[in-house]
């Protein structure tokens, strides 16, 4: 389905249907955590979530119409932001806690056992409180998450793409998701002026998510280099995509 033929309402409905399932860690190590056991839990969970994230992206109307090269680049760029915004949404009703999964709920202070992670936990908690303050609605969250994916390219995608139509399609898709978010906010019944404020407030939060993701990527890379945690499978590929691009 080409996104331009979908109404904002239909677009949001497909986003609801595209939502990935909540992932469980399953074999959670006994508390207290060590640096290695916490990093192992977090990376195991991330690897599981990544598989569902790809399924989610494919269900966003128009995403699979982009060329494969663009699909790969977008997902490689934004995966940690998507994981983080999902974490924020799950944690929104639980001040001071990070709900990585129903069986992996961490208090802020538990971040002390992994070198350098407390700073990232605090960023995540701060962004989550801001979303709580704004009373982020589920449909708004779904639009923001799709927006992160579609807006994640830092370079002109066509540079290496074999399909020049793909970047035109991507721009259409970004307009469609913007329309969807504007529609969701308008439906809330806020006065017009407050609607623009809300839109701006929500979009401004995305730069905080990007910042936390950059810090998180740096941290995961250093944990891997110091051999604190082995990184494998899909997570390794996704981490390498960032490492290679930075050099």
């Amino acid at each position: 389905i080409f996104p331009s033929v979908l109404s904002p309402e239909q677009f949001v409905t497909t986003l609801i249907e595209a939502e990935p399932p909540n992932v469980l860690l399953m074999n959670r190590p006994n508390k207290p955590f060590t640096e290695a056991s916490m990093m192992m839990s977090l990376t195991k969970l991330a690897d599981k979530e990544l598989v569902h994230m790809i399924g989610w992206a494919k269900k966003i109307p128009g995403f699979v119409e982009l060329c494969l090269y663009d699909q790969v680049r977008l997902l490689e760029s934004c995966w940690l932001e998507i994981l983080m915004v999902g974490l924020m949404w799950r944690s929104i009703e639980h001040p001071g806690k990070l709900i990585f999964a129903a069986d992996l709920i961490l208090d802020r202070d538990e971040g002390k056992c992994v070198e350098g992670i407390l700073e990232i936990f605090d960023m995540l908690l701060a962004a989550t409180s801001r979303l709580r303050e704004l009373k982020l609605q589920h449909k708004e969250y779904l639009c923001l998450k799709a927006m992160i994916l579609l807006n994640s390219n830092m370079f002109p995608l066509t540079m290496g793409s074999d399909d020049p139509d793909s970047s035109v399609k991507l721009r259409h898709l970004l307009n469609a998701i913007t329309d969807a978010l504007v529609w969701v906010i308008a439906k809330s019944g806020l006065p017009y002026r407050q609607q623009s404020n809300r839109l701006a407030n929500l979009l401004m939060l995305l730069s905080h998510v990007r910042h936390a993701s950059n810090k998180g990527m740096e941290h995961l890379l250093s944990m891997r280099c110091k051999n604190v945690v082995p990184v494998y499978d899909l997570l390794l590929e996704m981490l390498n995509a960032h490492t290679l691009r930075d050099h």
């Binding site: 399924g55 494969l68 699909q71 790969v72 899909l234 590929e237 996704m238 390498n240």
Partner: peptide, 13 residues
């Protein structure tokens, strides 16, 4: 990125 491409290419979920 082998696994990512593989997962994107599979049509069945």
């Amino acid at each position: 990125s082998h696994k990512l491409v593989q997962l994107l290419a599979t049509t069945a979920e």
